[in-house]
Design a protein around this nucleic acid. Structure first.
Length: 260
DNA sequence: ATGACGGTGTGGCACCGA
């Protein structure tokens, strides 16, 4: 079973690229972030024609997340239970896989702007709320995947300039402590289960030819619970869509799970 | 560097992202 995450930075603009990517990469589940559209604008029919059902938590202009799946998703939850949030940043659902089921938690984590800003405070509170809810989710759903745009580099390997950007947004100790706290719940960074190319990133700024110079960050992550860790067969970043015309600034990350 | 680039809204620019 393959599960992928992709921040598309407007599904309106990127729908043709999503359909192309799914045709070339027929994953079982695709989690999208930054839809930037309301539920009524979501391209349900086009995705259904491509073989995918959609669980959608949209929002006009900003945020918005969705889980696309080949088989029906059930027990859909929108946003973090126990944390009041006006922004559409999380959608969770249960999907069947060979030998069992997997709980998929798809998040568009808060950006946070800069250390000391109100948005940074919101990011910290949001991460705390997420962790408290996930503790319960893990208790009820042992086979769990937390994935999406975390807006956090896990460590220095995830940044093109760890020294120059030290303690700046996406690199602060506070953010990385939150990432580690998620790990301590019993989750594992699937990407780091394998030898990976050096300077592997999932996001590059649109400016200054950042992609061509590989000045990027790895901020899109796939974390798996302990029972699933044994089943992870591969985890790769697909840089190809960044070469498209009008690309998203993020690219897909894909995890492959062997049958339970 | 208050910049760059790109998306959205309803705009002639401002705001946000990372």
């Amino acid at each position: 079973m393959k599960i992928a995450t992709w921040n598309v930075n407007s599904l309106t603009v990127r729908l043709p690229q999503v359909l192309d990517w799914l045709a070339a990469n027929p994953v079982d589940v695709l989690c999208l972030q930054e839809l930037k559209l309301s539920d009524d604008k979501f391209p349900l029919a086009a995705l259904e024609a491509a073989g995918y059902q959609s669980a959608v938590f949209g929002q006009k202009t900003y945020n918005g997340v969705a889980i696309l799946s080949r088989t029906p998703a059930r027990d859909i939850v929108k946003n973090i239970v126990g944390f009041t949030d006006e922004q559409s940043r999380v959608i969770a659902a249960t999907v069947d896989m060979a030998g069992g089921e997997v709980r998929v938690v798809n998040g568009y984590f808060v950006n946070g702007q800069s250390l000391g800003s109100e948005k940074f405070d919101y990011k910290m509170k949001w991460l705390e709320g997420l962790r408290n809810w996930l503790r319960d989710e893990l208790a009820t759903h042992p086979n769990l995947v937390l994935l999406g745009d975390f807006n956090i580099t896990a460590d220095d390997r995830d940044s093109f300039d760890p020294e120059g950007l030290r303690e700046t947004i996406h690199h602060t100790s506070e953010e990385r402590l939150h990432f580690q706290a998620l790990i301590k719940l019993g989750l594992t960074d699937a990407f780091r289960l394998f030898d990976q190319p050096e300077k592997s990133y999932s996001w590059w700024d649109y400016r200054e030819m950042a992609f061509r110079r590989n000045r990027g960050l790895r901020i899109d992550h796939i974390l798996v619970s302990e029972p699933l860790k044994q089943r992870v067969a591969s985890c790769v970043i697909d840089k190809l869509p960044r070469k498209n015309e009008r690309p998203s600034d993020h690219v897909p990350v894909v995890v492959e799970l062997a049958p339970l």
